[in-house]
Structure formats: C-alpha cells, structure tokens
C-alpha cells in the first residue's frame, strides 16, 4: 500500500504549489479542490472514513463553493484577471519563511518519531459509531460550544454583509 500514500502525497504537494503560484484566483480554487480530494484519500488510508466524508462534503463542498462564489462576485475577469502580483521582496521573504518552517519541522521530526511507537488499532477504529461515542460521551461540552460558535459566526456574517451596516 506504499504507492497509495506516494500518489496522493505527490498530487497534494503539486496541487498545493499550483494553488499558491497560479495567477488566476479561480485556477487557484481548483488547485485547492485537488488538495482537498487528495487529503480525503489519505484520510481513508489512515482509517478515518468519517473524516474523509466530512472533508469532501464540508471542505470540497461547502467551503470551496463559498470561496468560488465570492471569487465570481468580486472579480470580474476583464477587470482584474490576475493583475495582482506580489513584488519580489514579498515573495523572497515568503519563500524564505516557508523553507525555514519546513526545515524546523524536519529537524523536530527526528526527535518526535522515536518517541511515537506504533500501536495496534482497536476494532472499528474511526467508524462513525466509535466517533459518535467519543463525541457524545467525552466531548459533549466541546460539541455544544462549537454549535454556539457556528451560530455566532452565522449572525456575524449576516450582520457584516447587511447593507449600510458600516456606513460612515
């Protein structure tokens, strides 16, 4: 099953690079969609089928559609088709920062990976029933807090987008 990891890892990295380098925002969104799908495939490999389903339905479904909707709303193609490009100092700073981050993690991995011993999986690991059990037994309070957070975000989004909400 080694090839499975490598195929989707390579797809995720290439699509990620495409997402941050392409000029068009819409192509960028399509690259992001590919990253999401590749992640979902890797979640399946890691015995997390419910997380994979949520990845496809919430990320690739809801969040990406929202982003594409806003791209369509704000960016008329003839007006600002990819005219926004960062200057060189911005870019080189970004690349330097990113490489430092990756290097830092790579150094850290050596010490971590030794500490983490592989454990054998219990029956039904990652199945919806096990996950639901964890949610409603151990994480019930957190679950309720998240539902309140979503409600607050909904109200905030409606208020912000209301006409005249921020009129001077």
């Amino acid at each position: 099953m080694d090839w499975y990891f490598w195929i989707f890892a390579v797809i995720a990295v290439l699509a990620g690079i495409f997402t941050v380098t392409t000029r068009e925002a819409l192509s960028s969104a399509m690259g992001l969609l590919t990253v999401f799908i590749a992640h979902a495939a890797l979640y399946l490999h890691l015995h997390a089928p419910l997380v994979a389903i949520f990845q496809v339905s919430i990320y690739a479904g809801a969040i990406l559609v929202l982003i594409v909707f806003v791209i369509m709303l704000l960016m008329a193609p003839e007006e600002r088709a990819g005219v926004i490009q960062a200057n060189v100092s911005f870019r080189s700073f970004g690349v330097l920062l990113g490489l430092c981050l990756v290097g830092l993690v790579a150094v850290g991995v050596k010490s971590i990976a030794v500490l983490i011993a592989r454990r054998s999986l219990p029956d039904g690991f990652g199945s919806p029933s096990v996950l639901g059990d964890a949610f409603f037994r151990d994480y019930l309070l957190h679950f309720e807090v998240v539902s309140v957070l979503l409600l607050v975000a909904l109200i905030a989004a409606i208020y912000l987008c209301k006409k005249r909400a921020w009129k001077h």
């Binding site: 990620g16 941050v20 990253v35 890691l46 926004i84 960062a86 700073f93 970004g94 920062l97």
Partner: peptide, 20 residues
C-alpha cells in the same frame, strides 16, 4: 505523514505572506 504535512504547511505559509 509529518514531512508531507509540514511541506504543505510551508507551501500555505509561503502563499500567505507572498501573495496579495
């Protein structure tokens, strides 16, 4: 997996500070 996700995080960070 740690290396893959740190590479993806790095790509995201590069994009976040270098795009406008």
């Amino acid at each position: 997996y740690i290396i893959l996700s740190s590479i993806l995080f790095g790509i995201g960070a590069i994009g976040f500070v270098s795009r406008r």
